[in-house]
Simulated scan of single mutants.
Amino acid sequence: MDRDKDSARIGRLEVVETGRRRRWSEDEKLRIVMESLQGSRQVSATARRYGISRSLLLKWRRLFRAEQNEAGPRLDFVPATVIAEPAVPTGGGAIEIELAAGARMRITGVVDEATLKAAVAALTDGRTR
């Protein structure tokens, strides 16, 4: 019958395994993207290390940047360092605030809570929470 004729035409049928499709969690993607941003020429090396294509890693990086831009300016906590200074006469003191962007403010004298809040708001363009 026709079925026998079709099977006679197929000489050899080979199944090629392309590998298992990997599902990456959002945390894994973020970790890989952050690793690829560590230095120059890290995209290809990072992609090879995790067995993904360079183009997929670049796509994840674009998505990461888009999410960062949508979130707007991000305020993070940074480590604070207390530096011992010579004793200041009573009734005075000094506070120095430096942000990661490089802006710096030094306030000397008696500083109450309202003054400190106003100074921080001015230094960060009013984006404090």
Score class of each variant (00 low, 15 high):
53 S>V: 04
68 Q>M: 05
57 L>N: 00
98 E>M: 01
84 A>G: 10
107 I>A: 00
51 G>C: 06
61 R>C: 02
72 G>S: 03
59 K>D: 10
12 R>K: 14
75 L>P: 00
35 E>V: 06
31 R>D: 11
60 W>R: 06
106 R>T: 13
4 D>Y: 07
85 E>W: 03
86 P>C: 08
26 E>F: 02
55 S>P: 01
37 L>R: 14
81 T>P: 07
51 G>Y: 01
84 A>T: 09
94 A>I: 08
22 R>E: 13
115 T>Y: 06
114 A>T: 07
114 A>S: 09
49 R>V: 09
26 E>Y: 00
69 N>L: 15
61 R>S: 04
101 A>V: 13
69 N>T: 14
72 G>N: 05
50 Y>E: 01
76 D>V: 07
125 D>G: 06
71 A>Q: 12
65 R>K: 07
62 R>I: 09
84 A>V: 06
123 L>N: 04
103 A>G: 02
53 S>K: 07
52 I>P: 05
39 G>Y: 02
21 R>V: 08
125 D>E: 10
72 G>R: 01
82 V>T: 10
31 R>E: 12
21 R>D: 08
120 V>N: 04
114 A>M: 11
108 T>V: 04
67 E>I: 00
62 R>E: 13
58 L>W: 06
49 R>H: 15
81 T>S: 09
63 L>S: 11
123 L>G: 03
30 L>V: 12
24 W>H: 00
15 V>P: 02
51 G>N: 09
75 L>R: 14
80 A>C: 15
117 K>R: 13
74 R>M: 08
9 R>V: 11
44 S>F: 10
62 R>P: 05
102 G>D: 03
82 V>K: 04
46 T>Q: 01
22 R>Y: 09
101 A>D: 12
107 I>H: 00
35 E>F: 04
84 A>E: 10
87 A>S: 12
79 P>V: 06
85 E>C: 11
112 D>P: 04
9 R>Y: 12
8 A>H: 01
121 A>T: 01
111 V>R: 11
118 A>C: 06
33 V>I: 11
93 G>S: 04
46 T>H: 02
92 G>F: 15
48 R>G: 09
107 I>M: 14
51 G>W: 02
36 S>I: 12
107 I>P: 01
37 L>Y: 06
33 V>K: 05
57 L>I: 02
1 M>F: 09
22 R>A: 06
89 P>L: 08
34 M>P: 00
126 G>T: 04
39 G>E: 07
11 G>W: 11
79 P>D: 12
6 D>T: 12
34 M>R: 15
120 V>L: 13
60 W>A: 06
33 V>W: 03
28 E>K: 05
110 V>T: 13
81 T>W: 14
119 A>M: 01
17 E>A: 08
40 S>R: 14
71 A>T: 05
102 G>K: 02
13 L>S: 10
76 D>H: 05
113 E>D: 08
16 V>E: 08
46 T>A: 02
126 G>Q: 01
88 V>A: 13
69 N>S: 09
120 V>D: 00
129 R>C: 05
63 L>M: 09
13 L>H: 12
26 E>N: 10
4 D>M: 07
59 K>V: 04
118 A>N: 10
111 V>C: 14
93 G>Q: 00
129 R>I: 03
27 D>Q: 08
31 R>Q: 12
27 D>V: 12
69 N>Y: 07
90 T>F: 07
69 N>I: 09
